[in-house]
Design a binder for these strands. Structure first.
Length: 633
DNA sequence: TTTTCTCCAT
């Protein structure tokens, strides 16, 4: 029915299972192998396998399979259930398969557990196969089995509507949905980004007389926080209080994390105090999340205070805490501090992992210290820490940025040899690298490889292709792709894509085409030109000497477009300066200054050049004012 | 004996 999933683990188990039956083990082993279970194992099963480790559970399975008489199927189902609780679904599936092979018949519960495991692994078809099998054997699925199956439909890529339908079918068939049914579906709707339906289902649940529980709230709060609706999450927290459901540390941590990630850092800190005042103890997640957030906002002293607080209160920082700190330091360019933390974590016997090394490698890359980045990579490998696709993508990106595409390609090859597959980000990086080194041929080649390798191009890929062709003087090629994108694909184009094309057209001297595209945006009404669109178009007009059109666009911006930026004014001013139109320049500079912007480097140098070339002539005064005006601030 | 769920890092 199915491949063995966790082969190495199972083989490990197998060798230990096989050991007692080998005759060199002698009588005792033989006796142990074919007599009943050891007292220890009996005791374990009796107390419900509490706190059993995975290895011991697999050992126990081996013992149970060998013992005579065999333990009851109830004992097997307890064991499978215990392993399922560790979320080792693949192990459960392997063991279930093993039972099948050894002729140990499954029952309603073991089938149900297997269905659950397949569903949790999003392998709905296998779950359905088991359901068919169990029904053929006369076992009628109960609400628990159906809830598991519902979860399977929810986790499947495209069967959420079937999940919704399944609940109706369940009712038609006389099953009574329960809170778990609702919770599962609510979570499923969130998984598919159907936020409003998920929230509405909570209300429907209440209407039907079901009380949302901690799990319902957990799912909803997590769902809305991840999407930035933190105000809604805070309301839900109040609602929980009103419903007399006590929020736990996880609920609080979830909301705090959501607040932090969506720029409400102070609210998160407040909630932290509120939680503590309610006697709920923050755990390592709470601290790590908050520390990481504070670091990201540059609030180093707050972060370090929290770290001390954490240690003082005997919550040990774990690898995630350290990784968060290291990454934050790296992004600040504080590599020395990051390395100090690296030493400290080793001192605390926390082994750095791939993420730790990825951050450190990224640190060197950000400073363009590629040799040291590679040394760190070597160190990582020497410590048996496996590089992953992020490690390689980081390095590939760094090499591309310093125009060493060949080295980047070499890294890509090495990655593939390690059995790692490039993802969309890896390919995007490499394609961009080739374009930036002017190699359209290879850029296209890599793109082809990406598609044939089954890696889905995203909006970024398209933008890189269009921009790459435009910037390498191949506007025609870009246009062909652009048309295809609009007509043949369902790729969601953003304003960025249009900006690239407008810029490409302008740079190729086709300002009229660019202007048509600009207008079609508004006519179609689907996309609103942003500040970049306007600035690009204005720059295009200026480049062609179409000053009136450029001015008209500035006026339009002031009427109903995005607010003109420093770039808008600088572009217009430079165009006037190049024409020697000092009065118009002065006028624009005045306006720019009144809006709080000032001249950028290239505008200032233009003014300076004019000043020098006209020295001794009559217009000193105006120019001097210009220079003063652009350079101030 | 079986089911749902939620918190931190590249």
């Amino acid at each position: 029915m199915r491949r063995f999933v966790h082969r190495n683990l199972l083989e490990k188990g197998d060798s230990r299972i096989a050991r007692p039956s080998i005759s060199v083990c002698g009588f005792r082993c033989w006796r142990r192998a074919f007599s009943g279970l050891s007292d220890d194992s009996r005791e374990r099963l009796r107390n419900g396998l509490r706190d059993i480790k995975l290895d011991d559970a697999v050992d126990l399975f081996g013992e149970m399979v060998k013992s005579r008489p065999r333990p009851s199927i109830v004992d097997f189902s307890k064991l499978l259930s215990a392993i399922a609780k560790m979320k080792k679904f693949d192990v459960v599936i392997s063991l279930g398969e093993k039972m099948q092979m050894l002729g140990i018949p499954h029952n309603h519960y073991t089938y149900s557990i297997l269905i659950n495991c397949f569903c949790r692994r999003s392998e709905l078809s296998f779950a359905l196969a088991i359901l068919g099998k169990m029904m053929k054997l006369g076992y009628k699925p109960d609400i628990v089995t159906l809830n598991s199956l519902l979860n399977g439909f929810c986790r499947h890529g495209k069967r959420i509507s079937d999940a919704v339908a399944l609940v109706d079918q369940m009712v038609e068939m006389g099953y009574q949905p329960n809170t778990v049914t609702f919770n599962t579906l609510i979570h499923g709707l969130f998984l598919h980004n159907r936020v409003s339906e998920a929230v509405a289902l909570v209300d429907r649940m209440v209407l039907k007389g079901y009380q949302p529980d901690l799990i319902t709230y957990g799912a909803v709060i997590n769902g809305v926080c991840k999407r930035g609706h933190t105000d809604l999450a805070l309301n839900l927290l109040k609602k929980m209080e009103a419903d007399k459901i006590e929020a736990d540390v996880v609920i609080y941590s979830t909301i705090m994390d959501g607040l932090c990630k969506h720029k409400h850092v102070n609210d998160a800190v407040d909630l932290f105090s509120e939680m503590e005042s309610k006697g709920i103890r923050p755990d390592v997640y709470t601290y790590s999340s908050l520390i990481s957030c504070l670091c990201n906002y540059g609030r180093w002293s707050d972060a370090s205070r929290l770290l001390s607080d954490m240690i003082e209160k005997n919550t040990n920082p774990d690898i995630v805490t350290f990784n968060a700190l290291i990454d934050a330091f790296v992004k600040e360019g504080k590599l020395l501090e990051a390395e100090k933390l690296y030493e400290e974590m080793i001192g605390r016997s926390i082994a750095p992992n791939t993420i730790t090394y990825n951050s450190l490698i990224n640190g060197f890359c950000l400073q363009n210290r590629l040799e040291e980045a590679k040394q760190m990579f070597a160190l990582m490998v020497s410590k048996d820490c496996l590089p992953n696709v992020v490690t390689y993508s980081t390095l590939i990106n760094a090499f591309c940025k310093s125009k060493k595409v060949e080295d980047a390609v070499e890294l890509f090859r090495e990655m593939t040899q390690r059995g790692l597959f490039g993802n969309t980000i890896t390919y995007n990086t490499l394609i961009k690298g080739f374009f930036e080194s002017g190699d359209c041929e290879n850029a296209q080649q890599v793109f082809k490889q990406m598609v044939s390798g089954g890696v889905t191009p995203d909006t970024m890929t398209c933008n890189i292709l269009l921009d790459g062709f435009c910037k390498n003087g191949k506007l025609e090629k870009a246009l062909v792709i652009f048309k295809d994108l609009q007509q043949k694909t369902e790729m969601e184009l953003s304003i960025v894509t249009y900006n690239i094309m407008i810029e490409g057209m302008c740079k190729a001297g086709k300002v009229e085409d660019a202007w048509d595209l600009f207008n079609s945006l508004r006519l179609k009404g689907v996309m609103k030109p942003d500040i970049v669109t306007y600035n690009t178009m204005i720059s295009g007009f200026c480049g062609k000497g179409l000053k009136e059109e450029a001015d008209a666009l500035l006026t339009k911006m002031k009427e109903d477009g995005p607010l003109p930026s420093s770039g808008t004014y600088n572009t217009l001013i430079r165009a006037r300066l190049r024409d020697g139109d000092k009065d118009a320049s002065a006028e624009l500079i005045k306006e720019m200054r009144s809006r709080g912007f000032c001249g950028d480097a290239s505008t200032i140098s233009l003014v300076g050049n004019m000043f020098l070339s006209l020295r001794g002539l009559v217009e000193h005064a105006t120019l001097f004012r210009l220079k003063a005006a652009t350079c101030e601030g």
